[in-house]
Amino acid sequence: MNRRDMLRFGVGAIACAAIAHPARAAPSFDRFRVPEWSRRRRFVSNGFGRIAFIDQGSGDPALFLHGYPLSGFQWRDAVEQLGLFYRCIVPDFLGLGATEAAEGQDLSAPSQAAMLIALLDALKIARVHVVANDSGGAVAQLLAAHHPDRVRTLLLTNCDTERQSPPPAMRPVIELARNGLYVKQWIEPWYASRDRARAADQFGGMCYADPANPTDEAIEMYFGPLLSSPARARQAEAHAIAQGGNALRGIAPMLARCPVPTRIVWGTADTIFEPANADFLAQAFGNSRGVRRIEKAKLFWPEERPDVIVEEADALWRGAKA
C-alpha cells in the first residue's frame, strides 16, 4: 500500500466509523494524544515571542490555523492522516496554546499573520496550503490578500468574514476581557468542571455538535496554558480584545484579485457565524472553488469531522497541481 492509498484508507476508516456510530464524532486513530503532541512540539523564538508549533510529515507544506480560544491541537486528527503525505505545520497563535507572546506584543489578526510569515521564513518554507477555522480564518484571508505568493491554496471553514468580524456572539467575550473577567468567569469554571464546559448552554454546546466534546484532554490543552500564570491569562484576554476591530474591513478588492484557489466548507448548525457567510466568502474570492455544506455541524466541526478536512484538503491540494 503506497502513501496515497494509506491516506484514502484513513479517510474511509474514519467515515465508516462515523456511519456506524452516527451520534458520535468521527474517531481518531489515537496516535496524537496529549503526550505525543507535547513531545512533538517545537518552538521558534523571534520578536513576536516564543512560537509553539507542530511540524509533522513530509511533502508539500500545509499550514493549519486554529480558532479562539483553542490551539493547534484542534487539528490533531486531520494532521494524523494528512501527515502521511504532506508536511503539516500547526502553530499556536500568539497568546494561545503553548505560544508565549513577547511583552507588549500586539495580538491582532495582522500581527498574527506577520508572525506566521516569520515562522515560515524560519522554517525556510516559501509557499503553503492554508487550512483555517474561526478567527484563524481572518488571519488566513489576510495572508492570501497580502501575501498571495506565499499561499498555494486556501481551505476555509466557518470563520470571520468582512461582513461579520467579529461575530455578535464574540461581543460578550470581548467585553469581559476588557474588564479582565473573561478567564476568571468563563475559562476557569470550564477548566474546573469538564462537564460544565460541555453543557448545552456553555462552550461545548455552543461550538460542538457532539455532547462529548470538547474532550477532557482537549480542555487541558486549550485552557490549561491560559491558566498557567496571570501573564498568560492577560494574553488570552488581550487576544480577545484584539478581535474587537474588523481586521478584514476593506479586504474585498484584494480577495477579488487574489489568484489563490479557495474552497469553503461550512457547518450549517453554527450558532456563532451566520450561514450567509459561506456564500459571501465564495463570492468574495476571485478564484473560488465553491462551497460544501456540512449538515448539523457547528463552529468547531473540523475537530469532530477530520474525515471531511482530509477529503477536502487532499482534493484541493491535488487539484492545484493539475
Score class of each variant (00 low, 15 high):
L7W: 10
A15T: 15
C16M: 12
I19D: 12
S28Y: 01
F29R: 06
R31K: 10
R33E: 08
V34W: 10
E36M: 06
N46K: 00
G49W: 02
G49P: 00
I51E: 01
Q56Y: 15
A62G: 05
A62C: 10
H66K: 02
Q74R: 00
W75M: 07
R76K: 14
D77F: 06
D77L: 06
E80A: 07
L84W: 06
I89F: 03
G95E: 15
L96W: 04
G97C: 07
E103L: 13
S108G: 15
P110S: 04
A113M: 09
L116M: 01
I117D: 04
L123W: 01
I125M: 04
I125N: 03
H129Q: 04
V130S: 01
A132P: 11
N133I: 04
S135T: 14
D149E: 15
L154N: 00
L156F: 03
T161S: 14
P166S: 04
P167D: 03
P168L: 09
P168W: 02
P168H: 08
P168E: 11
Y182N: 11
Y182P: 08
I187W: 02
E188F: 02
W190S: 07
Y191K: 00
R196A: 14
A199T: 05
A200H: 13
D201T: 15
F203E: 01
G205L: 02
D210M: 09
P211S: 12
P214E: 04
M221Y: 06
L226T: 01
S228H: 15
R232P: 01
A236V: 00
A236C: 12
A238Q: 14
A240R: 03
G245F: 13
R249M: 09
I251M: 03
I251F: 01
R263Y: 05
I264K: 10
A269R: 05
D270W: 05
F273I: 00
N277P: 09
N277F: 03
A282L: 10
N287Y: 08
G290E: 05
R292C: 11
K296H: 12
F300R: 01
R305I: 14
I309H: 06
D314K: 06
W317H: 03
R318S: 15
R318Y: 10
G319N: 13
